[in-house]
Amino acid sequence: MSDSSPLFRLHADVDTRVGAIRDARPDWPCSKGCDTCCRRLADVPRLTAAEWALLKEGLRGLDPQRLLTIRDEVGTLARGATVPIVCPMLDRATGACPVYAHRPVACRTYGFYVQRELGLYCSDIEARVAQGELADVVWGNQDVIDRALAASGETRSLTEWFALTF
């Protein structure tokens, strides 16, 4: 991905907002070691063509056995997933994402952005908001992110992208 691509610019904007929140709130729950959102997906992730190209690059850099495991887990999702869905990329033993640098925008914004009509999704963050702890946070606007992503090409589910590629 080039430094001038729309997806790269979007990542830079997201990184700026996430960095500002983390700088202002060193106790922010979304950090290395927290994989709660990865274990509680509401649906199979949807990615734009640009996001898939980046994720595919990260997947191709993985150990072949790890990629095979991910492919098998995606296949299981394609046959019918139960909710909550666990991200097929997640290393369940360590809670780490092996394609973290290549992750989709939804993974980058979760916990730091709010969708006006739907609000927050992380129950840990929602609980802190309810207690009045995060009143000073300047949240990112997920609706703006979604509009920017719409220009990043066709959108398909992760399972559809996998079926076309692996």
Score class of each variant (00 low, 15 high):
residue 1 M to D: 00
residue 2 S to I: 03
residue 2 S to K: 09
residue 7 L to M: 07
residue 11 H to G: 07
residue 17 R to T: 12
residue 18 V to F: 12
residue 20 A to H: 13
residue 23 D to W: 02
residue 26 P to D: 00
residue 28 W to S: 01
residue 31 S to E: 13
residue 33 G to M: 06
residue 33 G to K: 03
residue 38 C to F: 04
residue 39 R to K: 05
residue 39 R to E: 09
residue 40 R to K: 14
residue 41 L to S: 13
residue 51 E to Q: 10
residue 52 W to T: 04
residue 53 A to T: 00
residue 54 L to V: 08
residue 56 K to A: 13
residue 59 L to Y: 10
residue 60 R to C: 15
residue 68 L to W: 09
residue 70 I to D: 08
residue 71 R to Q: 07
residue 71 R to F: 08
residue 72 D to A: 10
residue 73 E to Q: 03
residue 74 V to H: 11
residue 76 T to L: 11
residue 76 T to C: 15
residue 77 L to Q: 00
residue 78 A to Y: 11
residue 85 I to D: 02
residue 88 P to K: 00
residue 89 M to W: 11
residue 90 L to S: 15
residue 91 D to H: 03
residue 94 T to N: 01
residue 94 T to Q: 09
residue 95 G to T: 09
residue 97 C to D: 02
residue 98 P to Y: 15
residue 99 V to H: 13
residue 101 A to Q: 07
residue 104 P to S: 00
residue 105 V to Q: 02
residue 107 C to S: 12
residue 108 R to C: 09
residue 111 G to T: 11
residue 112 F to D: 02
residue 114 V to E: 01
residue 116 R to F: 11
residue 117 E to T: 00
residue 122 C to A: 14
residue 123 S to A: 10
residue 124 D to C: 04
residue 127 A to F: 07
residue 130 A to W: 12
residue 132 G to Q: 13
residue 133 E to A: 10
residue 136 D to P: 14
residue 138 V to M: 08
residue 139 W to F: 06
residue 140 G to P: 15
residue 143 D to E: 14
residue 144 V to H: 04
residue 144 V to K: 03
residue 145 I to M: 13
residue 147 R to W: 05
residue 151 A to Q: 10
residue 154 E to K: 01
residue 164 L to N: 02
residue 166 F to R: 01
